[in-house]
Write a protein that binds this DNA or RNA. Structure first.
Length: 260
DNA sequence: ATTCTAACA
DNA sequence: TGTTAGCA
């Protein structure tokens, strides 16, 4: 009575596909115990343990190619290095997923904040924010794809960012990105008049006029530059429209010690 | 019924 | 990686 098993039995035992076992053989990392006269592959306990080792390395994201060298001619030190490399990859992946998680939470938060108060003026508290300069534009120059392609390469995940436009009264508009620690410009902590809308880009000028009209009518003393925040990622919920939030400081700047 | 190889998406 | 075809 033969104690070896067929490829499908091995596949079921180890929870992998038959194809994958043949693939390992093709790559030279798992040979059958023997092949029957009918060309059927047969596997014994040695192969079971061998496959378990292979699958463990695969779990650690060691590439099939490396597994071959690893099991034939690697020193213990090289094996350690292989595992360290896998560990680094996994840490990078973990960080990627955490950043993705943060982004999703941000989208949900911003979307809810908008859906609760759409197209309405509000007064919002803002913490001190630093901005780093990104692109400068002439007042009425459109930002075109070519210009964006020149400048945007160095900014990863640009379209997952809150892009800040500062209208400071001069004839240039500057695009900024938020920065936690420092930047060329800071927005002071304080109360900001806020209006957020989903509109088409060409309606932005009109929206800005509306914002200033309202502020004047309500006698809000606008203290600083107009801040326009573009959150293009909120277009997830409404294609062909862009989310803008207009803000302007309405309280006097805080004391230098920040404890006004 | 199961496995084989080979080629393809 | 999964799927398919034609074969033993």
């Amino acid at each position: 009575m033969k104690s070896e098993i067929t490829i499908s039995e091995l596949a079921k035992l180890m929870n992998v596909s038959v194809h994958q076992i043949r693939y390992f053989e093709e790559k030279g990392i798992l040979q059958p115990a023997y092949t029957d006269t009918n060309q059927y592959r047969k596997y014994g306990m040695d192969q079971v343990y061998e496959l378990a080792r292979i699958l463990l390395l695969r779990k650690l994201e060691v590439p099939v190619q490396s597994i071959k060298a690893c099991m034939t001619s690697y020193s213990a030190d090289q094996q350690r290095q292989l595992l360290h490399h896998s560990l680094q990859d996994i840490e990078a992946e973990l960080q990627r997923l955490q950043e993705l998680q943060q982004f999703i939470l941000k989208v949900l938060h911003e979307e809810q904040s908008f859906s609760l108060q759409p197209n309405q003026f509000q007064v919002k508290k803002r913490d001190l924010t630093f901005l780093t300069r990104f692109i400068e534009l002439d007042s009425h120059t459109r930002l075109d794809a070519a210009r964006l392609a020149e400048e945007a390469g160095r900014v990863p995940n640009l379209f997952e960012s809150d892009i800040h436009y500062l209208y400071d009264g001069s004839n240039t508009v500057t695009l900024y990105l938020e920065s936690q620690t420092s930047g060329e410009v800071s927005l002071p902590k304080g109360d900001y008049l806020s209006l957020q809308c989903l509109i088409h880009e060409e309606e932005l000028e009109h929206l800005i006029e509306h914002f200033f009209d309202y502020a004047a009518a309500q006698s809000f003393p606008l203290q600083g530059p107009l801040v326009v925040i573009e959150r293009s990622y909120l277009s997830l919920f409404s294609p062909h429209q862009l989310h803008y939030e207009l803000q302007a400081l309405i309280t006097p700047p805080a004391n230098p010690d920040g404890r006004g």
